[in-house]
Every structure is written in C-alpha cells, then in structure tokens.
Design a protein around this nucleic acid. Structure first.
Lengths: 193, 193
DNA sequence: CCGGCACCATACTCGGCCGTATGGAAAACG
DNA sequence: CGTTTTCCATACGGCCGAGTATGGTGCCGG
C-alpha cells in the first residue's frame, strides 16, 4: 500500500509531470529523496520513461527548481505587493506566511539542501528577491537605508528559522490560537508602530 | 592531496577519536557525509579499525551526538548564565553568537538533518533547553509568561535562520563591521529597552 | 494500411558504501 | 619471554541506485 499514489489518469507523461512529481517529493521528503526509480514508482511507470524525458537526475532537479522559482516568485510576494501601505503590506505578508506555513514546505526543504550545487544559486536568487522586498517595505515606512536592511535581515532570518522549527521539529505543538498569537507578537515586534 | 589531513601522531585510535572526527566532518559537510570509509581515510586507517570500536555507522552517529550534546550544553549557555542582570545576559548571548557564528557549524548542520531519526531527539532536547533559557531571561526582564514565550521563540528563530543564511548561503558578504551593526540592531529590536 | 515517432518496459552493467571474516602486528601482562 | 588482548589491514559479499541498451506498443500523418 505504499505505491499506487495516483495511478489513475493513465495517460502518457510529459517532462512537466516529472518536474511536478519531483517538487512534491522535495516538499515531503527533501531533495535527497529525489530518486529516479522512486519517482517512477510513484508515477506508475519505470525508469525507461524517465531517461527519455531527461538525460540524468541532475537535469530533472534543475528543471524542477527552475519551475519552482518561476511559480514562487509571483506567488507569495505577488499576492501582497499591490498593497499600497507598506505597514499593512508587511502585516499581511507575516500573517499569510504564518497561516499558510505548510505551503512553504518546498522552500524549507531547499533550505536544508543549500550545500547542493544546483540548489544553492536558486536559493541565493530567491532569498535576495525576498530580502529586497522586505528592505523596500521597511524603507517605505521611514527607516534609513541601513536600518531597513538590518530589519529586513532580521525578519527574513526569523522566517527561515520559523520554518525550520515549525516544519522539521514539531515546535512544541503550537495550535492555531497559539500560532496566531505568536504571529501577532512578531508583527508588534518587527513592524514599527 | 585530498587525504592525509592529520596523518601525524600515528598512535592507536580510541572511540573518542572517531566521534570527534565525525563531528568535524558533520561541521564541514553535514550529517550525510559521515561515511565510515571516508572517515577512515581521513584518520589514516581503514574500516577494519572502525568496526572494532563501533558495531555500525549509526552507533558512531549516536555516540558523536551524545558527545556534542554534552559539550554544547554548558558551552554557549554556560558562559553567559552567571550574568545576573537578565538584560545584560541576553545582550552578551547575542553578541557572542554573532561573533562566534562559525563555531555553530555543527548546530547548523544538525538543523539540516532534523529528519534523521537519531538527530531529531537530540535537537529537540537542545532546542528546548535554549528556548527555556531565553524564556527565563525574558521573564526576568518583566515580560508576562506568554509574551516572554513568544519573544523567546522569535529570538531563537532569528538565530536559527541567521545560521542558515550566514553559514550556508553567503549572506550577501557581511564583513565584521556590517555584522556587528546587524547584531546591535537585533539587540535593539529584540531586547526591551 | 503502414512506416515512423513518441513513450515506456525489461534487463542488464557499474560504482559506492555498508557490513563481515579473518589474519597480522603491536602493546600489555604475568 | 610467551601469551593474551587490543587494534588494524586485506579481502570479500551484498545491497542500492544511477545510467545504458534494446525491444515493444500506441498513436499519427500520409
């Protein structure tokens, strides 16, 4: 009963199907778990299929991460970017990440694979974009250039650490009420009144 | 020129030597890189030596982590615990971690292996202790129980995220001056005036 | 209806790393 | 000084996962 996850829809596969399956696996079991034969079983096919679409395992990883980077860039940040007031924009960003923490599983998994030569540059770009986003918002609420940069770093580090502790460790079982209270505390602390 | 790191001191080895070598390797290349044959090469011996001291690879990991947990518990926190004033204690803790960030390489590596069944309980204990330490200090500066708990969580998450970004990613090349300015900003933000 | 292309199965090889078996050298010991 | 214990080398068996080779099946244009 371990296999046959989605053996319905027995149509032919495309490269995109493999990439998406790889991303799903990354979210659940990390980058190291992306094995060709395991993916093939999950998709109801064999390795023979894989090596028609991709030359090797690294090519799949590269393609999957490219796909993720695209659909992630305008995912989280794009949702809150239209908010004009920078303070409200930050608040909304924090609340969303707290509420939909589980959807950051891929980001968290990639964070734990920063030593991988393929993952590293992708995460460097994504992190830089998010840091820039935060820095801009903090500047718009009146902070100086250096203070805004530091506060953005702090907020981003808190986000990264929160993901690690909440998703990997159980983070002393925080229920919804407790979590929301925590998020509000973060907002009070990291967003100037 | 990749091997023969410390082939001097050609005396017999003890289990402790293997544990220490494992910790060094964890710090540099992560938990996944702890392979017995690789360690043997680094120590200038062969596998035959290893399997005399340990029954298998997991036993080494377990012993190494026990050793680390012991020498870590009274390492960072023990140094600043005697400081009576809670505010000064927190400041000193933050400054030390910022200054000696590189010595947290093992902690950072273990953080990236939280899925490993042997690593997980160790990190759960260590994290709980550190969180308790922070929570107590925040309570002593006058915070309520819940606020102190939340602030401790935030500070600890910021610490965890900082390690990931600074050690794994290059964290946009922060030099000493920039880093100290960042630490001071963190102190101003996370420690109540 | 047929040749060709897209997609997939099957059956291998190969290298890496774990663990085992066994013999040898070096120290410790009586 | 011989024996026992401790530590290590060498050699081997086996698993697992990547990658290759090759043949098979459905679909599609002509």
């Amino acid at each position: 009963m371990l296999h046959a996850v989605a053996k319905v829809e027995r149509t032919r596969l495309s490269a995109a199907d493999w990439e998406q399956a790889a991303l799903d696996l990354i979210a659940k079991q990390g980058v190291g778990a992306v094995a060709v034969e395991a993916l093939a079983r999950q998709l109801g096919v064999t390795k023979g299929s894989f090596y028609w679409h991709f030359p090797n395992r690294e090519a799949l990883l590269k393609a999957a991460l490219e796909r993720w980077e695209k659909q992630d860039t305008d995912q989280v940040l794009g949702q809150v970017e239209p908010i004009a007031d920078p303070r409200a924009r930050l608040c909304e960003l924090f609340r969303r990440t707290g509420r939909e923490a589980k959807s950051h599983a891929i980001y968290s998994a990639l964070l734990r694979a920063l030593d991988h030569p393929i993952v590293q540059p992708v995460m460097a770009r994504v992190s830089a974009r998010r840091l820039d986003f935060l820095t801009l918002a903090y500047r718009q609420v009146g902070m100086s250039r250096s203070v805004a940069a530091h506060r953005a770093r702090l907020a981003y580090a808190a986000y990264v650490g929160f993901l690690q502790l909440a998703l990997q460790l159980g983070m002393p079982r925080l229920e919804h009420a407790e979590l929301e209270a925590y998020v509000e505390h973060v907002i009070d602390t990291l967003i100037p009144a």
